[in-house]
Every structure is written in C-alpha cells, then in structure tokens.
Design a protein around this nucleic acid. Structure first.
Length: 559
RNA sequence: UGGGGUGUCGCCAAGUCGGUAAGGCACAAGGUUUUGAUCCUUGCAUGCGCAGGUUCGAGUCCUGCCACCCCAGCCA
C-alpha cells in the first residue's frame, strides 16, 4: 500500500473484494457498475458511490459500466442522462460501457415469459388499493390475490396482451409468485411489470409495459457480468429478492450485492426529491446553484474534482449512519487549493483610502509573488497608487490591542506595499465612513520601519487601476444541520443569507481569468469565476470557501 | 407486537488468529509568518451503547437488555 493510500481508512467492501480476488472468485475479475436513474442531477452522495464503484474496479484492475436505470419513463429524461455523464466524467472516471436498463427490455420480457411458464409469475388484476390491502402490514402477513391461481397459459396470454397494448394503465400487473406471508415485505409477490402508455426517452413507443427495479436491476447486473453490485443500505431488504430472481432464472453470472450507508452532509439536503423541489420552485439558481450539493453545483462553486474524490475517500465506507460535518468538505478544498491557487487581492466591502502625502498621479509598479512558498507559480505586477480600496472590516475608528488592522491614528501595511497611517475619516450624512485619509511612510517598501513595529497587514486594490467585480459569497442553504431530518417544512429552514452579493474590486489582472482558474483572494478565501453569470466586462466571482478564520473565533469568543 | 441494519473521542473512521484503542476533521496551546492563511510542535477515548459472563487477558467470544435507522410505490 502506498503512502497516499495510508491516509484513507480501509473499508469492508474492499476487504470483501480483495478476498474474492485472492480466492479466484469470478476468475479474479472485478466488474462494477454505477446505475443512476436519469431523473435528476447527481449530488455528492452519488459521488461517494461513484468513487467506490469506480475506485474498487480501478484498484483491482477491473472495469465499471455506467448503466442508466431507466425503467420509469414518467420521471426520466435524456437531458438528465447527459448531465449525469458530464458529472461522472468531470469527477475523473471513465466507464467501460454505457448501458441502459432499457437495452434489456426484450430480454427481460423473455425472462418474464419463462417465469410465467414455470408458474413463478402471474398476472394480477387487483386495483392498486386492493393490492395494498392484500399486502398486509409490517406485522401482519399478506394474503393471496384471487388471481394468484391463474394458470400459466392464462397468464401468458394476459401478459402478451399487456405488451400488445390491449389494456389500460393500471389494469393488470405482473407479479412474482413468492410468498405473501414472508416477514420481508419485498418478498410478498412483488410487482415486476406495470402498464404505462407513455413514450420512453430511449425506446419511444415500443413498449407500454415497463419492468420494475427489483426485477430489472439484478438481471441487468447479471447480463453485464457484474461481479460486485454496490448500492446503499435501503436495498438491503431487497437482496433476497435480487438473489431469488437470479436463482429462478438460473443465471450463471451471480453478482454479489453489497450495501453501504449513504452520505449525510450537514446543512444541506441530499434527497433528489427535495433538490428537484428547490430547483423547480426557483428557490435556487438551477441544478448547478453553487449552494447545492450537486456535482454541478459544487463544480460551479469552484470545488475541484480532486477535492471531492479526496473527500469521498476520507469519509470512508461503512454501514453505519453518518452525519459528516461541512468542515471536512471545506478542509478538502482548502487543502487542494492551498498549493495550487495563485494569490491575488480582492476587496469585498470597499472603503476608499486616500494617501495624502503620496504624489497625485504617481504610480509604482510592484512585482509580487503569486504564492508565498511555491515559486513556480510565478509573479505579477501590481500598481500602487494614491487611492485604494480596503475592506471595511479592516478599519476601525478605535479598537483594542487585539485588533491588528487599521485604526485611526495607527499604522498598518498594505500588503506588498507601504505602511500607512490613518489620520482622519470623512463621513456622509448617515454617519457612514466614505473615505479614510492617510499618510504613508516612503521608507517601508519591502522593509520594516525603524524603531516601531507594524503588526497588521491588509489587502487592497488600487482605486484607479483595479477592476470592479461582483463577488458572491455563499453560506449554507439551510439554517439547521440536518434539514432532511427536520419535521418542519423546508421553506422555514432556508437560510435567507445563503447568498450575499458584494460589489467589490479586484486586481486588474483578474480581467484575464478563465473559468478553470481558481484564486486565493488573500485573507479572504478561494474564488473562481461564476460560469453562469460572469461576462467579459462584468466579472462575477464565487467564493468557493473562506480561509480558516482564527480572528473570527477570537472576536466571537470576546463578545 | 414483523423483517433487515447500526451503535469505537464533538464529526468521520481503523481495529486480521481475543493481547492491552490508528488516522483524518474539529478543537486547544505554543512557534514561524508582509495572508489573524499556510507550515511546525504539543495536547485531545484507563475508554469501545448498557449489564452480566467466559478468559491470565475482550472493542474483539457468549447471554440479556437499550437506543437509533430502513421497509407496507403498479418509485429507484
């Protein structure tokens, strides 16, 4: 095991697979699959599953198929398929084959006829309500449908007529004949085909009966030669059914279904239903809203695929319920960007500083490093001028010793530039400071002043040489750590301040920024252009994540 | 009152044959620093849901409890 792998926890699935491989099971082959339903966008929970399934195959020199679980045409679309493919590719994974469950519709149908002929499936004509009544409850066994005793001949005739479109939606279903008294509800003669006279995005109007998940998934896995079928814990109860179907059909490829717990991340929702609701109710800016935990949202926010993969490996894979803190995800992106993002300066809440003893019209070119430690990141030129913007947070008319930024009568260094001293402020009618009038010490460029210590360094942008930019700062979409678990309506839980828009200024050089680039705005955080709203003459930056902020903690503790 | 799961530090999570509790995040305290960032150092479970038992020795085995999660779609 390499040193990079030691950083991550092992997991029980890898152990199982490793043992299978060493035992020569499946001739030592590992074939996995990722089976999304094309009814929405992928989110970070899916990323966990993707990293696992693709990761295991990669680790054991196997392969992973991408298979769209498109058995419910009512909810699915080809647009979602494309979005899903883009996200997986962006995460950095390559699937061996792209499949659709619908590719197997004909084979699935033939298998169903066989089950009927062998008296292992029957056409039921109960209504949905009656079906529910017959199913029993968690504690009470179900009872047989009166149609359960139909002969194979009768069933075959009915099933063929279902296929040919003779019946309306809901008139009949095909059920497996297992055991209505089973303590496992999934085994109480589950429905495997229903009638739906709808157009399917892949098969068009070829079918009006559609197979259901439990029946489709295991057979698709088997047909593709999947060795390890990894899914979330909610399918654990379905495993007996998965195995039952493959047993009855005597399939020679017998994939092993292994379940793991899905990811829960603080301050966000992970259910596709809720994400879809947020998008459709226009409560967010599309599926790729930077506040969403969707892959597209994280991408637009500026998260790197590397950081997401790192996160997925750090959280591990187990069967226990988990509540992962947002801090872990943030730590992953900070770690990735710390060494790769060039440093620049940007002011989010501008307030003007005028250096009165700096000659009007004078400009000085400063050559500054793009990274404090990594020389390969090069350098750039900044222009120092008489007027600059600093952040309102970096100035106080008065403050205690702990505050080491600009205070009236005190000194601070403008990062990479001179030490300035604040002499007076001018305010508007509302008492709001509009300008800070300063003087500078000409002998402090690149060196400390004689005989006194300047404790603070703040960032700035030249007023005349900077670039106006809109800067979007994000906070969690929800105010509670686990909105999914909250009984209140999600509208009540939404954070009204999840997006703050700043009209700020950035270094002129950022005018050439590309969508792929990420920067550290010094002392603020990591930023990138917003792929949706940024334009050449009106740049919009997204804050990916703030820097660790010890000062905020000190302040909070002091108040 | 049915079935299936899970319970190791605030969060995530390692923990082969029982041998005397990894690591990451977070947090705290120092040091370096023209980013209150980074980096470095140090600290952070006599304890593994609880109670018994077996054993020289148990997070790991046995018994009994308790808590939490999932399942009653012609969704996946």
């Amino acid at each position: 095991m390499s040193s990079t792998e030691e950083k991550y926890p092992g997991n029980f699935i890898r152990n199982i697979i490793a043992e299978d491989v060493s035992n020569g099971k499946n001739e030592g082959q590992v074939v996995t699959r990722f089976p999304p339903e094309p009814n929405g966008y992928l989110h970070i929970g899916h990323a966990k599953a993707i990293c696992l399934s693709f990761g295991m195959a990669e680790e054991f020199s196997g392969a992973t198929n991408l298979r769209f679980d498109d058995t419910n045409p009512l909810k699915e679309s080809a647009e979602f398929k494309e979005a899903i493919k883009k996200d997986i590719a962006w995460l950095g994974f390559q699937w061996k084959e792209e499949k659709n469950a619908s590719d197997y519709f004909e084979q699935l149908y033939q298998f169903a006829e066989r089950l009927i002929q062998e008296n292992k499936a029957y056409v039921d004509s109960l209504s949905a309500d009656e079906l529910r009544e017959h199913r029993g409850t968690l504690t009470k066994p179900g009872k047989d449908s009166p149609y359960r005793s139909r002969t194979p001949e009768e069933n075959l005739d009915l099933f063929r007529r279902m296929r040919s479109g003779e019946f309306a939606d809901g008139e009949h279903i095909l059920r497996l004949k297992i055991d209505m008294a089973s303590p496992n509800i999934n085994m109480r003669d589950p429905a495997i085909y229903r009638i739906r006279h709808v157009i399917h995005h892949q098969t068009g109007d070829e079918w009006c009966i559609y197979p259901m998940y439990d029946y489709t998934h295991c057979l698709s896995d088997s047909l593709e030669g999947i060795t390890h079928s990894l899914c979330d814990l909610s399918f654990e109860d379905h495993r007996p059914l998965y195995d039952w179907v493959l047993d009855q059909l005597a399939m020679n490829c017998r994939p092993q279904q292994i379940e793991f717990s899905r990811l829960n991340l603080q301050y966000t929702v992970m259910s596709k239903r809720k994400l879809k609701q947020l998008v459709e109710d226009n409560l967010v800016d599309g599926w790729d809203d930077p506040r969403l935990p969707t892959i597209a949202g994280l991408r637009r926010r500026g998260y790197t695929s590397h950081s997401i993969r790192d996160f997925c490996r750090r959280i591990g894979v187990t069967k226990s319920d988990n509540n992962v803190e947002l801090a872990l995800l943030q730590s992953c992106i900070r770690e990735d960007l710390e060494d790769s993002a060039p440093r620049v300066m940007g002011v989010l809440n501008p307030i003007k500083v005028v250096i009165e003893n700096y000659p009007e019209g004078q400009e000085e070119e400063l050559t500054v490093a793009n990274h404090p430690k990594i020389e390969e990141l090069g350098s750039r030129k900044l222009i120092f001028t008489r007027e600059a913007y600093i952040d309102r947070e970096d100035f106080r008319e008065e403050a205690n010793r702990k505050y080491k930024r600009l205070v009236l009568g005190g000194e601070v260094r403008l990062r990479y530039g001179y030490v300035i001293k604040a002499n007076e402020v001018t305010k508007d009618e509302q008492g709001e400071i509009v300008e800070i009038r300063c003087t500078y010490d000409p002998d402090t460029l690149g060196k400390n002043p004689e005989g006194r210590k300047v404790r603070g360094v703040i960032h700035w942008v030249s007023a005349s040489k900077g670039l106006a930019a809109e800067i979007h700062v994000y906070d969690p979409l929800f105010t509670v750590d686990f909105p999914d678990a909250d009984e209140r309506d999600y509208h009540e839980l939404m954070n009204p301040e999840s997006l703050t828009i700043h009209q700020g200024f950035v270094e002129r050089g950022l005018g050439e920024a590309t969508l792929e680039q990420r920067f550290q705005f010094e002392r603020e955080g990591y930023f990138c252009l917003d792929s949706k709203h940024s334009t050449a003459d009106a740049p919009v930056f997204n804050r990916i994540v703030g820097l660790r902020d010890t000062w905020a903690k000190i302040e909070k503790a002091g108040s």
